[in-house]
C-alpha cells in the first residue's frame, strides 16, 4: 500500500483509503475517486509536481500534498 502521489508514471493503483478531510474529500468523491476506484498515473509535470492521473476516463492533475492521504494498492494486471 502506498500514497497516490507515489504512483510512478504508467503505474496503476486501486484506491484503498481516502484519509483526506474537508472540502477536497468531497471533490475527490465527486470526480469518482472512491474506495475501489482504478487510478493510473499518466504524467508528471516538468517540475515534478503535480502529477496527472487517469480517473474514470478523465485526466486530472493533483498536487502531491493534496493526494498524500489517498492510499492505493498496486493492482496486479
Amino acid at each position: 500500500m502506498k500514497a497516490l502521489k507515489d504512483l510512478k508514471v504508467g503505474e496503476n493503483g486501486v484506491v484503498s483509503e481516502i484519509l483526506t478531510n474537508g472540502n477536497i474529500r468531497r471533490r475527490f468523491i465527486d470526480i469518482g475517486l472512491i474506495k475501489g476506484s482504478l487510478v493510473k498515473c499518466v504524467g508528471i509535470s516538468p517540475f515534478g509536481n503535480p502529477k496527472a492521473y487517469l480517473i474514470r476516463g478523465a485526466v486530472i492533475a493533483i498536487r502531491k500534498n493534496d493526494c498524500a492521504d489517498i492510499l492505493v494498492t498496486n493492482e496486479v494486471v
Binding site: T20, N23, I24, R27, A52, V59, I60, A61, D66
Partner: peptide, 10 residues
Amino acid sequence: PSAFTLEMPP
C-alpha cells in the same frame, strides 16, 4: 493554498 484538481481535457 486550497487543494484542487485540474482537469486536462483531451
